[in-house]
Amino acid sequence: MDHSTRPAVRGLSIAVVLVAAAFTLTACGGGKNTRGGAPGMPAAGMNDNGQSNGMSSGRDIDVRGLEGIPAEDRHLFTDPNNPLSTRTVYFDLDSSAIPSRFSQAIQAHGQYLANHPNVHLRLEGNTDERGTREYNVALGERRADSVKQAIVLSGANAGQISTISYGEERPAELGQNAQAYSKNRRVDFIYTNN
């Protein structure tokens, strides 16, 4: 292949990827996702605060993120009156400071982990799309670390908690507006089996 055809091939490759992504989003039904799963897939039974809305899709309410929770305890995490049902912490722009409205939930998760030493939690840090990739990965990491520190101060063992940052790569809500940005600046709580 000579150099004159390379840009056309590169453009074609990008177009194929974009069409495949659009097809995937269309097939998924589009819309909100407040739990950090595949973009465009709404989470069954969850509201915009990361809490159960009492609705079920015919199976366990929002099983994603509860795989490491014993079945007999899952109701604690899906009861909207229980602070354990808050499994997402949202942040202000450019901040890793935990808003005070999440204090009760953080304390409840710390106490649950302290009382269940075999349970493990992964904290997934996320950002909105603004800023460089490197900056957003670092900000997502700072957010996850600040939540981890708060949970440990509430009684959990640091060894029970791992952190990861996805930066801007896993939006909870697609869009370039204030509402989408506010839903993407978050840390998701994922209880794992390991």
Score class of each variant (00 low, 15 high):
20 A>E: 08
20 A>M: 09
21 A>C: 12
21 A>I: 15
21 A>V: 15
23 F>I: 15
23 F>S: 13
23 F>R: 09
23 F>D: 09
24 T>I: 13
24 T>S: 05
25 L>Y: 11
26 T>Y: 02
28 C>V: 11
28 C>S: 05
28 C>P: 00
29 G>C: 04
31 G>I: 09
31 G>V: 10
32 K>D: 12
33 N>E: 01
34 T>N: 07
34 T>M: 03
35 R>Q: 08
35 R>G: 11
35 R>W: 04
35 R>F: 07
36 G>K: 00
36 G>Y: 00
37 G>Y: 04
37 G>N: 09
39 P>H: 03
40 G>Y: 03
41 M>G: 00
42 P>S: 08
42 P>N: 06
44 A>Q: 07
45 G>F: 01
45 G>L: 02
46 M>R: 10
46 M>S: 03
48 D>E: 13
48 D>P: 00
48 D>R: 04
49 N>F: 11
52 S>P: 06
53 N>H: 12
54 G>M: 11
55 M>I: 08
55 M>S: 14
55 M>G: 12
58 G>F: 01
60 D>E: 13
60 D>I: 06
60 D>V: 07
60 D>L: 04
62 D>M: 05
62 D>T: 02
64 R>A: 13
64 R>M: 08
64 R>W: 06
66 L>Q: 12
68 G>V: 11
69 I>T: 08
70 P>T: 11
70 P>R: 05
71 A>M: 12
71 A>S: 14
71 A>W: 07
71 A>C: 01
72 E>Q: 15
74 R>M: 12
74 R>T: 15
75 H>N: 15
76 L>S: 07
76 L>Q: 15
76 L>I: 13
78 T>D: 08
79 D>L: 04
79 D>P: 05
80 P>R: 15
81 N>S: 15
81 N>Y: 06
81 N>C: 07
82 N>T: 14
83 P>Q: 12
86 T>D: 01
86 T>A: 08
87 R>H: 06
87 R>E: 01
88 T>H: 03
89 V>M: 02
90 Y>F: 15
90 Y>V: 13
91 F>S: 09
91 F>Y: 14
92 D>G: 13
92 D>T: 08
94 D>S: 07
95 S>N: 05
95 S>F: 00
97 A>F: 04
100 S>Q: 11
100 S>K: 09
102 F>D: 06
102 F>M: 08
102 F>L: 10
103 S>K: 14
104 Q>D: 14
104 Q>C: 09
104 Q>I: 14
104 Q>L: 12
105 A>G: 10
105 A>M: 03
106 I>W: 02
106 I>T: 13
107 Q>G: 08
108 A>S: 14
108 A>Y: 08
108 A>V: 13
108 A>K: 14
109 H>T: 10
